[in-house]
Amino acid sequence: MTSRVRLGGQILAVGVVAALLGLLVWKVAKGDDNSVTSSLAEGRTAAAPDFTLAKLDGDGELALESLRGKAVVLNFWASWCGPCKDETPLLQRSWKRWQDRGVVFVGVDVKDFRGDARSFLRRFGVTYPNVYDGKGSTVGRYGVTGFPETYFIDARGRVVYRIAGPVDEASELDEGIERALAAA
């Protein structure tokens, strides 16, 4: 009886160790969640993680995949984020300049109150589409490290450039857009 208990304990211990080892191997094989950010840091492009989220500025949803064939400027923001207030007018002006050239701007409002986000868009007169991601489901997949953060996606759906932090100059946006257009 005692030897059976001991054997059972040993099997349990080996099982737990094997499970932990399996988890470790799975995590290493799966790689870092911030694959987009790490790929860009290594000078490579990365497939833009797809999402379908509810629009903030109208009814229905927007799927990133539906924008395939166009260059996309994807801006992660929140109404409570101070630097987002500074860069939003610049984004809106750039959108006006680029919208007739096959470039789409999309805002992703993250971890925010919907009402606050809508007020923010009205306050800054934003007319490009914005989606709501209150739970922050896109943050980990893109590797967003803070707000605001902007990703540039080419027509094939590859992220080619990223600006971490607020965009201060229109030329910074132009550079990212030109890279996205050139890559297509």
């Binding site: 929140a78 409570w80 984020c81 101070g82 971890k111 925010d112 109150f113």
Partner: peptide, 11 residues
């Protein structure tokens, strides 16, 4: 004391 936490407290 984050901005969103203050906003949630107000809510």
């Amino acid at each position: 004391n984050a901005e969103i936490a203050r906003r949630m407290k107000a809510f």
